[in-house]
Every structure is written in structure tokens, then in C-alpha cells.
């Protein structure tokens, strides 16, 4: 039996979260593998949070942010991209493929795009297989 993948999506409170609620309004199904965390800005998701996600056993992590010219806080997506680049270097040392971590931009009405991106990401992670890290080993 194929193991169910664990995918974590950090959604920025503004455009991506509106896409996400839009998915509900339009009755677009959300892949069962995806767990969603709402954050106030994609730039809040720092290296430590990303590493914690992998430590807890995430097979893939997607950060959904607003478009660069559309950020409520000014530099959220830029900061997120910087954090992701930093995390890529650490994942490389750990021997985890960088494809497990991805960043996507959204405008507030792009529910279909979010849906197709999530499905595509889950499929890609399925091809990569389970992460070698045993998650949920206890202590916080």
C-alpha cells in the first residue's frame, strides 16, 4: 500500500487565504494530503519553521504568498524567497531534495490556480516518496 504523503501549506492571510476560502465557495476539492496553516504573511515563515515542518515529518512544504507588487506588508514575498533559499542550503546538507519545498504567488481570485498547484505539488511529492525523516518522535 502506498503511504499517504504529508504536505504542509503555509497560506498567507491575504491573497492565498482568499483563494483558499474561494475553493470552498466554488466547491473545489482540497487534496487530503494537505494540511493548511494560515500565517499573517509569507515572510513570517522563517527557516526555523520550515525546518520544524520537516522535523515533524512533512514530506513537502508549500508556501503560498501574495504577488510581489501586492504584498500588504511590503516585502513579505521577498523575505519568504530569501528564507526559502537559506533553507535550500540546509536541506542540501541534510540530503533532502529541494523539490520538497516550494513557493507560489497568488492573486486573491486565483482559487483554481491554488487548487491545481496543490494537486500538482502533492503528485510531485508522491513521486519523490516519503521523506527519510521520521517525524513525530515526541518532544516539542
Amino acid at each position: 500500500m502506498k503511504h499517504k504523503m504529508k504536505v504542509l501549506a503555509f497560506l498567507c492571510n491575504w491573497a492565498p487565504w482568499s483563494c483558499y476560502t474561494g475553493m470552498g465557495d466554488l466547491e473545489i476539492p482540497i487534496p487530503g494530503e494537505v494540511n493548511v496553516i494560515r500565517v499573517m504573511c509569507a515572510g513570517r515563515v522563517n527557516t526555523a519553521l520550515l525546518l520544524k515542518a520537516f522535523e515533524k515529518g512533512a514530506d513537502g512544504v508549500l508556501i503560498a504568498g501574495c504577488r510581489i507588487d501586492n504584498c500588504q506588508n511590503g516585502t513579505g514575498p521577498e523575505v519568504a524567497l530569501k528564507n526559502i533559499d537559506h533553507t535550500y542550503e540546509i536541506l542540501n546538507l541534510l540530503g533532502l531534495k529541494k523539490e520538497r519545498l516550494q513557493f507560489k504567488y497568488y492573486l486573491a481570485h486565483e482559487s483554481e490556480k491554488l487548487s491545481s498547484d496543490l494537486h500538482e505539488f502533492v503528485e510531485r511529492i508522491g513521486e519523490l516518496g516519503k521523506s527519510p525523516i521520521v517525524g513525530d518522535q515526541g518532544n516539542v
Binding site: 522563517n46 519553521l49 525546518l51 520544524k52 520537516f54 522535523e55 541534510l94 527519510p132 525523516i133 521520521v134
Partner: peptide
């Protein structure tokens, strides 16, 4: 943010290949 401790916990997974 506990990142260094996360790294250590990740390294305790038998399957990891750094």
C-alpha cells in the same frame, strides 16, 4: 526558533543520508 535543535532531531532519523 529552535532550528538547531530541529536539525539534531532530524539527524536522529535512521534513513537520513546527508
Amino acid at each position: 526558533g529552535g532550528a538547531m535543535l530541529s536539525l539534531m532531531r532530524m539527524m536522529s532519523s535512521p534513513g537520513i543520508r546527508q
